[in-house]
Amino acid sequence: MRTPLHRYELTACDSLQDALAALAADPSARPFAGGTDLMVLMDAGHLPPGRYIDLWKVRELRDIDVTAEAVTLGALTTYTEVLKAEILRREFPMLGIAAAETGGIATQNRGTIGGNIANASPAADTPPALVAYDAELELVSSRGVRRVAYEKFHTGYKKMDLAPGELIARVRLPRGRKGWRDYYRKVGTRKAQAISKVCFAAAADVADGRVRDLRVALGSVAPTVVRCTATETTVRGHAVDDAVVVKAQRALASEIEPIDDIRSTAAYRLRVAQNVLREFLTRIRA
């Protein structure tokens, strides 16, 4: 049975200032971006009646800004816009891969990066790439602006460092990744329109046969996206060989907590996560 949607009120806003004022005036109100998560929940009656503040027409949240230090995406940047941005394709290709593997074209035209982050699904596909890229979030409210390392943003299952009345305004990606090699792999039931069973993003700075630095992040294997620092430690500073791969795979098992659910099993997820890690390490070794 469908739920009558008139239980949900959508308040239009033309500017960021409007949106922040509307959120400040009604502490129970929540932001609404492309609606590709929210409309599904509303239709199924999984959300209590209430008010939503419509960000869709807020221009200030839509631009992609490039400076010498960083590429900054407005929270309303859609997957399609991510795919069109030449600078992202060149310097942050994993975001484009994640975007192209998110839903189908219709979902990519409406779903936003801010919505993907704030929906806080452990199975979301951009978070591992954002962690691997050391992304930082700019959060705004009527009280001001603050910045949080994305890695620290998700604090538990569907919990995040976001106060009532606060919005994700921008996602900042630090540049200067020359020489880094990226590896992204989403494993789902189908190539498109499937929710991840395991989502893996990693990047490595390899010079003279040694891994100077690296990032490894996984989705769908814990209550939030995880940066796998123990795994990184087993590899950092070393030349990748079989022994390093085995150590890294063992470390990975110690820091992810996959579960059994309708999409997969804990055992399958662990096995696949370790196999994909090996594939990444094999690639950077070559």
Binding site: F32, M39, I105, T107, N109, R110
Partner: peptide, 8 residues
């Protein structure tokens, strides 16, 4: 292309 079921 959009899905009109998810478009307010």
């Amino acid at each position: 292309l959009v899905n009109s079921c998810l478009t307010p």
